[in-house]
Design a binder for these strands. Structure first.
Lengths: 237, 237
DNA sequence: CGGCAGTTTGATGTTACTCAATTTAAGTGG
DNA sequence: CCACTTAAATTGAGTAACATCAAACTGCCG
């Protein structure tokens, strides 16, 4: 990890918790956050946070993709969610100094650490920040509950379709989507670890989706050919 | 639903969010909460909250067992967690007026509703309440993540063992446990819906646990004969 | 051009589901 | 307290979904 220049380098999204703490991009003063905020860049595949590690900082992803996961004793791993620019690693980490999960960089990644004490201080000062955090909390909880329902009740096809739809929605909030092409830098193994299948089976299902003209994932780009069908398969209700 | 006498009837546990809002049992004044808090009793099996319903109140379970779940379009249902006395239905509901889940009474249940506006007001006043809520939030998030890992990566045996251990820990915080007997008023169908299996398969696994002298569940009581083995099977790491 | 990581494909094995019948337990009213 | 009723749990046989193993193929990068 090496430091980079402060926040000018870090794109902001007008959404989520990070912006609430820092203020809107046009009113942000890089110098003011010098002491309690810093930025890092890490290469693809590097681990950023390890399970049971403690930190005085709260982390936000600024650029690239990451993922949060749990590793089981025997090596199996479950990806809990994917982190996109603007995402807090987890709401709980604003209050808890211990991480119960690990985080890895999926692509090259830029992230920011903010002193927890400073974040909590601002939280106490500003109702707007509390609101942003509460919103993040409820979105996070709802997403978790949906994932639990998917893993517990749904078939391989349904799980994969749901994951793709979920990621599409999140990507679309940050990027302009042209011609139904979504940047999605996932290996099939990542999809497998996220939906609780083997990479082999994911390959078969994605192959089937391609043959049926639903979606096509390659080179880190998802081309959606039949959104309606994807939604029919991957929607909870 | 019918009203009952105010909070004297409602046992308190010195743990969790409800107590933080109301103060410790010995310093609690029932009269003072008259306007913004009420209690209800419902029979076993009754639905308390429906998905997409909105409410001006924040709910806490006071007595009995409930469960939070999502129902899919075709009838499948996923139990997200079980609610025990002292549990907030969900942290998100302190800020969100819309429920994204449903709640049912497992046994006869006593619960309390508190005006969200009043709870938020107290939240703004008292750091202790904020802390209790934050703690609840991080416990909830960690539990969700564990469940996701279990559903995604683990076998039927592991899932069931994990659920039992999780419930045992929670029950033990509220009850005195004698001779390794835990009150657990679940039908096998509830276990099935919580761990994403069929009731038939749950029956087979529980039968196997019984034959192997690990645990025995009947009449709403779980007798643990070999805790070490149960933990070997059901621990994530 | 060779090597490597990722994907695809086929053959076979295992786990958990489905369907159906049977047993046990839990109520319920006489 | 006992026959009757109904819900829950158990058991067996057959099946579907997904895992595992192994080999072949693709694209990429040095």
């Amino acid at each position: 990890m090496k430091s980079v220049s402060p926040c000018a380098a870090c794109p902001r999204f007008g959404l989520g918790f990070c912006d609430a703490v820092l203020g809107r991009p046009d009113e942000f003063d890089p110098g003011a956050s010098a002491g309690w905020q810093y930025h890092r860049v890490v290469a693809a595949g590097k681990q950023i946070v390890a399970q049971d590690q403690t930190s005085p900082d709260v982390f936000v992803l600024c650029g690239g993709w990451g993922f949060r996961f749990l590793q089981l004793n025997d090596g199996r791993r479950q990806i809990l969610n994917f982190l996109l620019p603007g995402d807090l690693f987890s709401v709980a980490s604003v209050f808890e100094e211990r991480f119960h999960f690990s985080v890895k960089a999926l692509t090259a990644v830029q992230f920011s650490g903010m002193r927890r004490s400073e974040v909590q201080f601002r939280l106490a000062e500003s109702p707007a920040i509390v609101l942003a955090l509460a919103k993040t909390c409820s979105v996070e909880a709802e997403a978790s509950d949906e994932i639990i329902a998917m893993l517990g009740q749904c078939s391989a096809e349904e799980r994969i379709a749901h994951l793709l739809l979920h990621l599409m929605r999140r990507v679309a909030k940050r990027n302009v989507i042209r011609e139904q092409r979504y940047p999605l830098p996932l290996r099939q193994q990542h999809i497998a670890d996220a939906v609780g299948l083997t990479a082999v089976h994911v390959s078969r299902i994605l192959g089937s989706f391609r043959d049926r003209g639903i979606v096509e994932l390659s080179n880190g780009v998802l081309k959606v050919a039949d959104l309606a069908e994807l939604e029919r398969i991957g929607s909870l209700n």
